Simulated scan of single mutants.
Amino acid sequence: MYTKNILMTGSTGFLGSFILKNILDETCHNVFLLIRAKNQDEALIRLKKLIFRIYKEDRFTRYNKRLEVFCGDQTQSCLGLSRKKYFSLFKKINEIYHCAALTEFNEPWEKVYKVNVCGTENIFKFAYSCNKFTKLNYISTAFVVGNSRIHFTEVDLSTNQNFNNTYEKSKYEAELLAKDFIKKGLKIAIYRPSIVVGDYLSGETTNFRMFYKPFRSLSLGLFAELPLNKDGYLNLIPVDYAARAIFTLAENEDSAEVYHIVNPRHFSLPYLMDFAADFFGYKNPKFISLGEFDSNHLTAIQKKILKIYLPYFTYGALFFSEKTQKILARHHFFYPDTSKGFLERIFNFCIKSGYINSKKLNKVF
């Protein structure tokens, strides 16, 4: 089996950790991890905690020979490394998984731009200088579609869209950068996941952003009425299958393509709202059209919550992935059934972790 030297950013993140697990379990590749920390010792501690989190047991000794930690920062020159370490790295690296990103929706543009655009450009420049480089795997997002209400495919990017938050805008800008580097000859595969949620079988997640927060707000009865696109959909993909799809494409496909890592099944917004309310035992607010909604009576806290998540209550785009699905099928990868049982498992984990309180359980006890 051919052994690669892989540089990986974002390995301690939710999706990145699952991608790392695939690399460790399915290959004999050496992985060089760029981890942001105060010093080398702290970076190593973060790696050991990561391995324990991935495997639920101490397997660090087993994989230690294939892992090397670099305390660094993608936003800094030389990736925050000494010149000696930086130059030694680009003589070794064959491939990169660039997963690191600032994913919060409400961060100021300057902060998000520094990490998601400038930091990504630094990774692209590093890859461009590597002596034995083959391919860069860049984790983007399907939400580069912004507020466009279209059927969004792998060939689409610029659709005269505006963006719902600084995260979406930054990932769009990074994809434009990727196009520029592809023209220069750098091979970049772009992966656009939809909404990444908990593990398929356990429902477990370490990231309660995006999909989960609105349901927590609804369970607390914070809103009497809300706008909802009754014809809208959301696309949810289990983190383990998202990671597996990305790894499968990265390992087996050699071309610089855009891939949509999205669920073939879309969940309608009304169905999700009703399912969650019934599951957790709370009463939904009155759902009305955006044109009928008056935000003037809302409190400051309500306005802050809605500013972040309102665009996804009224979402209009659909993510299409026929091209990607056909390629994955050639490699015997297929998405699992994500119907009622899947939603029950990810919501059950919300209760188990204490993130959302179940009123049904409270009535029982």
Rank of each mutant, 00 (worst) to 15 (best):
N5V: 13
N5A: 12
M8I: 05
T12M: 05
L20D: 04
N22M: 03
T27Y: 08
V31N: 07
F32Y: 14
R36M: 07
K38M: 13
E57L: 07
F60Y: 12
R62I: 11
V69Q: 00
F70R: 02
F70I: 03
C71W: 05
G72W: 06
T75M: 02
Y86H: 09
K92W: 14
I96D: 12
H98K: 01
L102E: 10
F105A: 07
N106Y: 10
W109C: 00
V112R: 06
K114V: 12
V117N: 08
E121F: 01
N122K: 06
I123V: 00
I123F: 00
F124E: 04
F126N: 04
C130E: 07
N131R: 12
K132A: 12
N137C: 06
Y138A: 03
F143K: 02
V144D: 04
T153K: 10
S158G: 11
K171A: 06
K179V: 15
D180G: 09
F181D: 08
I182V: 06
K184L: 07
K187I: 01
I188A: 02
P193N: 04
V197S: 02
L201Q: 14
G203Q: 07
S217V: 10
L220F: 08
L220I: 00
A224G: 11
N229Y: 02
K230V: 09
Y233W: 15
L236W: 00
I237R: 05
D240W: 03
A242R: 02
R244K: 12
T248N: 07
T248F: 03
N252C: 03
N252Q: 01
V258C: 10
V258N: 13
H260P: 14
H266I: 01
F267W: 08
Y271R: 01
M273S: 09
F275T: 05
K283V: 12
S289I: 04
E292V: 08
E292H: 13
F293A: 05
D294I: 03
S295C: 10
L298G: 03
Q302R: 00
Y309P: 11
P311G: 00
G316I: 00
G316N: 11
G316Q: 11
S321F: 02
T324N: 07
K326Y: 10
H331I: 09
H332N: 13
P336T: 04
S339F: 10
F342R: 01
S353Y: 09
N357D: 13
K359D: 14
V364Y: 14
